[in-house]
Design a protein around this nucleic acid. Structure first.
Lengths: 151, 151
DNA sequence: ACTCCTTTGTTGGCGTCGCCAATGTTGATG
DNA sequence: CATCAACATTGGCGACGCCAACAAAGGAGT
């Protein structure tokens, strides 16, 4: 069996046609573009932070546990992410007077501004990720992905 | 603004329709199913190991650098993954006599068997991941994902 | 009132995947 | 012969997901 340095990039057949592989590759590309976008215009915020800001903006003040449930983020990770958001003044935390064990998290004006800025970044990223597809195909993909994601 | 414990799981609108979000969710589900499958029938091997075995089986013995290129795995991660594969006797490493800095990695018979076993596991996983879709839709999704993955 | 169970926030840890830098060797190229 | 590139290895980092243990607090049932 001959060796094969000096050859072009290949992908084993076992991988390249498997849906899970394609899903993984597509996701990897999406993540790379997301990362670059957040790097450039995200001001150090990451996916977790955006999810939390989005939930706060839409649903209003909430406890950390509820935030975790709405965003699919583990309670412990919510704590860490909020620490950063609070440090930047994008969010405020205070103890719920009725439930002293509960923190009520509120979006600040600065937080709203940051969310809007991220929205723009995100929109650009969507366009870049879906660029290989026509508008109709993009809609198809979104519909199919939604069902696969749901299970 | 009223609080909202005791409510059902919701997802912020900002997230739930974005292609990158759906891609991420679909990928997450795929990964969860993959993880469960490897847990059950993967004998402690993970994605990296399968990729490496697949490349070796199809393309024959190769240097670690070539393996990395074929599988999209970083050289440093190839080293670590091979360490485990070698420890299990699924792979053999020897120095290339013509290039003493190069290791030639060879798939053993046990490695081939392990690969076959993983193939079956993987096939089952594909079916589970794509279960929400009809056969025609599955083909559509695969075609679209391939293009998105490619960029 | 008292016990039991659950929720909440926090800390700390683990695993996967992807990536990058530095290093010592070695081969190839000028 | 000097330089440069490739190779394998080590070690580290970041994002994301997840889990266990914990103390504080509340709720339910007796």
């Amino acid at each position: 069996m001959p060796l094969r340095h000096d050859q072009v990039r290949r992908t084993p057949d076992r991988l390249k046609d498997r849906p899970t592989w394609l899903l993984s590759r597509a996701h990897a590309r999406s993540v790379a573009i997301l990362h670059a976008g957040f790097e450039a215009g995200g001001n150090g915020l990451r996916g977790y932070h955006y999810r939390l800001l989005a939930a706060l903006e839409q649903f209003g003040p909430a406890s950390q546990a509820d935030l975790g449930r709405d965003t699919g983020i583990d309670r412990s990770d919510v704590t860490a992410a909020l620490l950063l958001l609070e440090g930047r003044g994008l969010v405020e935390r205070r103890v719920d007077p009725d439930h002293k064990r509960r923190n009520i998290v509120t979006l600040t004006t600065a937080g709203q501004d940051a969310l809007r800025a991220l929205d723009d970044v995100l929109d650009g990223i969507q366009r870049e990720v879906l660029a290989p597809l026509s508008a109709a195909e993009q809609r198809q993909l979104v519909a199919l992905l939604a069902r696969v994601a749901e299970g």
